[in-house]
């Protein structure tokens, strides 16, 4: 069973004859016998998922790393966090997915308007199943709990991931005044309600 270990800004993936999927081009070094091949634009989600990703404008592109040995993965010196998932679902902004172990499914979710406002495509990636997921963030992640009666509002550009039962809605800070001159500076924000946790990074993309 492949093991993912985060070491600050590098992800160490120990392979024991099995495979993981990682962001294309993220390998910085490896030891042992490891083969790298493109997992295609589907990211393993099957042909249907590939079509949907194309439609959604997703830029996620994964490679499959197979063999015995240790692979070092990194992306633009960003902080790496490893998440263990057991029969659960995590929603991650696609460009933050660094690697997933084999038994996790990646699926694309349409996010509608939200994607339009952030300009990074119309979709986020839903990671479900059991296994490990490594995500990258510009600076250490900050977790913000969401409970009934305690919604949180985040900047779409700082949002990285979400877990639990969350309902997302778009908050518009635009008033008629801002159409003629100055706005609130945060024209669109994401409001999360329900029960779960939202992860943000201390930087705006």
């Amino acid at each position: 069973m492949a093991q993912l270990v985060a070491q600050k800004r590098v992800l160490l993936a120990d392979l024991t004859g099995d495979s993981i999927r990682a962001m294309s081009g993220s390998m910085v070094a490896y030891q042992g016998q490891v083969e790298f091949k493109s997992a295609g634009m589907g990211g393993g989600g099957g042909f249907r998922a590939a079509i949907r990703q194309r439609v959604a404008g997703e830029s996620i592109s994964l490679m499959e790393c197979t063999g015995h040995g240790r692979v070092h993965l990194a992306y633009q010196a960003q902080d790496v966090t490893v998440i263990g998932v057991q029969n659960d679902t995590v929603t991650v902004e696609s460009e933050h997915v660094l690697a997933v172990t084999r038994d996790l499914q990646l699926d694309v979710q349409f996010a509608g308007l939200r994607g339009m406002t952030t300009g990074q495509g119309l979709a986020t990636t839903k990671v479900s199943g059991s296994g490990q997921l490594a995500i990258v963030s510009d600076g250490p992640l900050i977790g913000l709990d969401v409970a009934p009666g305690q919604p949180v509002v985040v900047d779409p550009d700082a949002y990285v991931a979400g877990l639990g039962q969350l309902q997302m809605s778009l908050v518009s800070g635009v008033t008629w005044r801002s159409l003629v001159g100055e706005g609130g500076g945060e024209p669109f924000s994401l409001r999360f309600e329900g029960h779960g946790r939202v992860y943000i990074q201390p930087a705006e993309r």
Binding site: I83, I142, G143
Partner: peptide
């Protein structure tokens, strides 16, 4: 179940008041 997120997590009460959450 989700684990491994040893990263600091806060809610409205536990967020620092007028202080750094982390250096950034």
């Amino acid at each position: 179940m989700i684990d491994g997120l040893g990263t600091a997590s806060y809610d409205a009460q536990s967020l620092p008041a007028d202080d750094n959450v982390n250096p950034y």
